[in-house]
Design a protein around this nucleic acid. Sequence first.
DNA 1: GCGTCATTTCTAGACTCATCGAAGTGAGGT
DNA 2: ACCTCACTTCGATGAGTCTAGAAATGACGC
Lengths: 113, 113
Amino acid sequence: MEPASVIEALGALAQEHRLAVFRQLVQAGDRGMPAGAIATALDIPNSSLSFHLTQLRNAGLIEQERQHRSLIYRANYPAMNALLGYLTENCCAGSGCEAESACEITVIEGKSA
Amino acid sequence: MEPASVIEALGALAQEHRLAVFRQLVQAGDRGMPAGAIATALDIPNSSLSFHLTQLRNAGLIEQERQHRSLIYRANYPAMNALLGYLTENCCAGSGCEAESACEITVIEGKSA
DNA sequence: GCGTCATTTCTAGACTCATCGAAGTGAGGT
DNA sequence: ACCTCACTTCGATGAGTCTAGAAATGACGC
C-alpha cells in the first residue's frame, strides 16, 4: 500500500459521518446496505451521504453494487486490512517492537496488499 | 478510546507531512528527535513543522519533552495501539470475523486503552 | 411511454486546514 | 546583562472540505 493511498484512506475515515458509515457497513457484513438505509440509520441527508460514500469509495474502503433500484454498499475488508497492515508495519518495522514501550499488535495474514 | 479521539488521531495521520513525521518518530524510537532534526530530515520549514507537531500532539500521538535548548518529540506507542485497537475492534466486533472475507488482524494486548 | 422511487450530480455558501515569513519566547553561554 | 540558538506563535493568504437543497439520472412497474 502506497503512502498516498494510506493518507486517502485515513482521511476518509477521519470524519464523523464517514467513520459512522464505515462502521455501519462493517456491521452489516457481506450483505451490505443500500444508500437509503444508511441515510435513515444515521440521519444524514441523501446528498450529504452520497458525498461521503463517494469519498469512501475513492479511498477504496467501500464498494458499490447495483441491486434493482438500490445501490448496495459494502465494506471492503481487504482494504481495511491493508491499511491496518501499513500502520502496524510502520509501527513495528523500523524500531524495536519487542520492547514493552513499542506496539504489540501482530498481523496474522496479508501484511502487504 | 472515544470516537472523537479516533477521528482526531486519524485526521492527524491523514496528512503527508504528519504521517512522515510520525513515521520518523516511530523509527527514532524512545530516544525521540528534536524539532530541528525532524525539520532537516523531512525538509519542512520550521513554522510549518511546528504546526504539524502541535496537531499530532493534540491528537495524543506524540509527546514533547524539553531537553536543554531542544524540544524532543517522541511517538506515543500506547496511543497508536489504542487507535489500531479501536479500528480492529470495529472491524471484528460487529460482524463475523471468522469468515475469510472479514478482517484477520488480532490484537495481542491492550485492546482498550 | 409515463410516473415513481432511489440515488447521484450540481451548485453555492460557510467553514476549516495548510503554508510560511516575520516576530516573539525561553534556555544557555559568556 | 547581553547574545545566540531552538523553537513556537502570529497573521495573512490560498486551497480544500462539508453541507444540503434543487435538479438530473437510472431502474422499475404498469
